[in-house]
Every structure is written in structure tokens, then in C-alpha cells.
Design a binder for these strands. Structure first.
Lengths: 267, 267
DNA sequence: CAGTGGTCTAGACCACAGC
DNA sequence: CTGTGGTCTAGACCACTGA
């Protein structure tokens, strides 16, 4: 997600090799594969767009013809196209056709953990677990997690480092019994990765991002001067059944971090 | 979107009237209506969930039976259900059935303008346009908007007030000719509302949120003490064809604002 | 006008969950 | 085992776009 080291520059993407506008595009499906036909087609179209074989703005050819060419039914082809429309890669216009979206649309950023972000950025992340206990939920935590006030919840406090420098102070509350919350594993990986490997399917998160000046204690913990601007984030994460699986209340050194994310308009 | 006055409290939702778990739910479609059948069904299901007539976790009844009851085909019913699954209101489990998600999932926040947010929060927003000109695009702006460097783009600088107090300093770059950018209208409404009424369909936005200390000039403009923490936001907004329609670079008084938004995991 | 996507039908077989 | 959703087919008619 969303978190990005300040140092990371949004590099300009180099254009792919010259697009071949003559051949109509090589597409085929494997009916012996367990992969759904619509999914195979969607993957191939997405790859073609990605590689520039389908130029931005170019028409895809009508659905009937595409279905005939692949030996598929029209609904199946439509399902493939629809999945790419949902991803924002294609646009359908009645009476016109289906075209590749103009300009390179960057793919939406994933809901990843700060740990993964740092690792992907080559920042050599490290974690120090300051606390890993079970406590009764305060009113705020109970409301966020949807548990009764006073119910036991796990509290985890961590310092996240990159290149041996503190980057963020992370405070998480989790429902107990959801998955094994081993301190040793917490030190070597991210919370979301632990959840995913426990079979939890993350679905959405609601966040509030703000800023404020660091207190003396916070400043010391993050090796910032007192009063330095901090980024604050509160996040409640939900799984695919709508249950809250995590409530976090974090602070980041604003001098080192900013959040990057993609918002989608829900029509 | 995203922007929320600090003062706004996320009020606890009061539970609806007692759910009737006996009657299977009143559903019907009007075949004379121009509204698609799957959409009518989706609306009714959504309303039922909203009103608590369908309790969280309750099963919806299988698709075949539902189709039979409504006189619809299964694919049509599936299309309705799928749209609600996409919205995060329903969960499908093979071999189990379709159930309403646990816990009230808040609906994703919209990509609205700061103006709309303030207005919705009863903050009586006002805008002062400081600048509304056409300029050659800098490298950064050109990259964000996908236009050649040096091409003419519109530059708008605004101060946004709430209750007669400055809240944010907004700086926008827009492709020229996209829509009429009248200064008078800018003072009485939001940019996104102007775009929408010009027929532009907003699709997604990519944002970066950070924080830093205010410079002397910024502090004065926002009536904050020098060095006060500011929230910074850069945003590029895209329409449904993938074209960048706006690039903004804004600062907000951290003492007054935080951003709230919802992230969705794209499977 | 012809061509496109938007919607809808009435079937079919399969994979997986839970008993 | 039964019941569920997941996938797929081969048609159909309509609404809109652009020439």
C-alpha cells in the first residue's frame, strides 16, 4: 500500500517495443486447463495491453467476432472483457466498441503492509516488538473491531526500522484467536502477510490520515526533533466476510514517509 | 473523499428496527420499467440489507430458487448478486450459499471534492480564487497530466475556507479545453462538481499524502504558527477513459483536517 | 442505416462444502 | 450423498452510436 519511502522516485516508464498494428492479436484458450476460459482470455488481453501490443485507444473488435474467433460464447467473452473494464484497463461504449484505456493507467496499489513496502523498496526493514499482550478492549478499540467493550483483544506495539533507522511506531489491536501471533514471526515479517498465510482474505480497509507535531516521547522514539511533524494513520482492516480483523494506530516520520494510494470511484 | 473535518465524529450507527426473520423477504421486479431487471433486484437487496431486513450473516437463499420466485433466469439473478458482492455487501461461498457480510460495512467514500465534504459536514465552505491562468506545463505537471512538456495547461490557485477560516491552499493544473473553468463558478462550487456537470466521468485518482512543517509564507496564508504541521496531498485524477483530467498539489492545516478514505483490495 | 454493446433466457455440467 | 455457487453455451431482442 500506500506507504512509500520518500526516496522512491516515480520513475518514468519506458515505452515498450514498437506496437504491431497489423496482426489482429494472437489469442487462444486451452480447454483442458482448469483455469476458467474467461480468465485465460482476460489474462491474455491484460498481458497484451501491458506489453503495448494493444495500443491505448485501440479498438478490441466486437464481442461476437472475438467469440467466434476463439470458439467461445459471447457471454464468456463478455465476462473476460468485463473483468478488465472493472480493472480500468478497457472502456466499453455502446455503438462504438471496446477500447483500451488512454494513457498508461497504473495498476491500483495493493493493501500491503509497511514491511512489504519497505522490502520491495530495498529498504531492508526490521521490526522490534515492544509489546505483545492481551488486554481488555477500550471503547474506541471495541467499536473499531466490533467486539464488546472490555472483551479481550491482542495489543501489539512495534517499532519499524529501515536501514537501522526507526521509521514508524505501530500500535495494533486484533481480535484474539484469529491467528497465531508469535512475537518471533512478528519480528521477521509483516502483520498482513501473517494474516494471509493464516487463510484470512483481506478485503478492504478504512483509514484516517492526519498530521501533528511529535510529543517529546514520540520524538525520542523516532529520533526526530521534538515538535517535528508526524504522519498519523488509523486503520481498520476487514476481511471478505466484513469482519474487522485489525485496528491500527500508527505514527510515521513525515520526513521519511508519505502514503501513496489509489482511490476508485464506485459508480 | 477522503477529507474530513477534525471535528466530525464517526457517530455510532443506531441499529434499525427489529428484523423480521420469518418472512423470506418481499422482492419483485417491474418488467415494464426501463431499469434493468438485475439492477432492480440489486437495489431491492441493497435496501433490504441497509434497513436490516437481511441480517448480517444471514443466507440469501439459493440462486435457482430466487430466480424462480422472481420469474427471472439464473444469470440475471447472478448479475444482481455479483454487483452486491463487488460492493462488499454479500459474500458467496460455494457449497454454502450467499450471505450478507458480517458487521455493517460502511459504504466506500466517494471521490468528492473538499468543497462537497465541507458542505456535507455543514462547514459552510467558501473559496477565494487567487489565480486562474494558462501556463506552459513544467516537467512534473506534464508528466502527471500526460501532455508534452511546455504545453499550455490551466493553473488554478485557491484558498478554501470553512466558517470564514482558511482551511486549505489548493493548487490545480488542468488540461485546457476540457471544460469551462469560470472563476465565478469556481468560487461557488467544487472542481469535481464542475467536471461532472461538464460530462466528465471521474474514475480513479492516485494520491500521495505526506506532512511537513509550514514555511513562513504558508503559515501566514493559513493563519497557522510558523513551523506548524501541514498535511500535503498530491493527486492526479483520471476519467473513465484513463485520461488525466486534473493534477493537484494541496496543503491543509493539520490542526483542522484529516483524510479519511477506504482502500479496496483488488483480487 | 448498420454495427456496437446492454440485457435476458433456459438450459447444461462441474467443483466444492457439509453431512 | 445433496446442495451450493462457478462456469459455459447458443441463441434472442433492445438501445445507442455514428455515418
Amino acid at each position: 500500500m500506500p506507504h512509500q519511502p520518500r526516496s522512491a522516485q516515480p520513475g518514468q516508464e519506458t515505452p515498450g517495443p514498437e506496437t504491431d498494428h497489423t496482426t489482429p492479436l494472437q489469442l487462444s484458450v486451452d480447454r483442458t486447463s482448469p483455469v476458467p476460459l474467461y480468465f485465460q482470455l482476460a489474462q491474455q488481453l491484460e498481458a497484451a495491453i501491458e506489453r503495448g501490443r494493444l495500443a491505448p485507444g485501440s479498438l478490441l473488435g466486437n464481442e461476437i467476432e472475438l467469440a467466434g474467433r476463439l470458439g467461445l460464447s459471447r457471454p464468456t467473452v463478455r465476462q473476460a472483457i468485463q473483468s478488465l473494464v472493472d480493472k480500468g484497463l478497457l472502456v466499453r461504449r455502446r455503438g462504438v466498441g471496446t477500447q483500451v484505456v488512454h494513457s498508461q493507467v497504473k495498476r491500483p496499489l495493493e493493501l500491503s503492509s509497511l514491511y512489504d513496502d519497505l522490502e520491495a523498496a530495498g529498504q531492508r526493514p526490521a521490526t522490534r516488538v515492544l509489546r505483545n499482550t492481551v488486554q481488555p478492549a477500550t471503547a474506541e478499540v471495541a467499536a473499531a473491531l466490533g467486539v464488546p467493550e472490555g472483551a479481550e483483544v491482542r495489543l501489539i506495539e512495534r517499532l519499524r526500522y529501515a536501514h537501522d533507522e526507526p521509521m514508524a511506531y505501530l500500535r495494533n489491536h486484533l481480535p484474539i484467536g484469529l491467528f497465531d501471533c508469535d512475537t518471533a514471526r512478528l519480528e521477521t515479517t509483516g502483520l498482513y502477510r501473517m494474516m494471509r498465510s493464516a487463510g484470512i482474505t483481506l478485503h478492504s480497509a478504512r483509514q484516517t490520515v492526519g498530521a501533528r507535531a511529535a510529543t517529546a516521547e514520540e520524538a525520542e522514539r523516532l529520533t526526530e526533533p521534538s515538535g517535528a511533524p508526524l504522519l498519523t494513520m488509523e486503520r481498520t482492516t476487514f476481511d471478505d466476510t466484513g469482519r474487522a480483523v485489525e485496528f491500527g494506530s500508527h505514527i510515521y516520520r513525515a520526513s521519511r514517509y508519505s502514503f501513496e494510494f489509489q482511490l476508485l470511484v464506485r459508480p
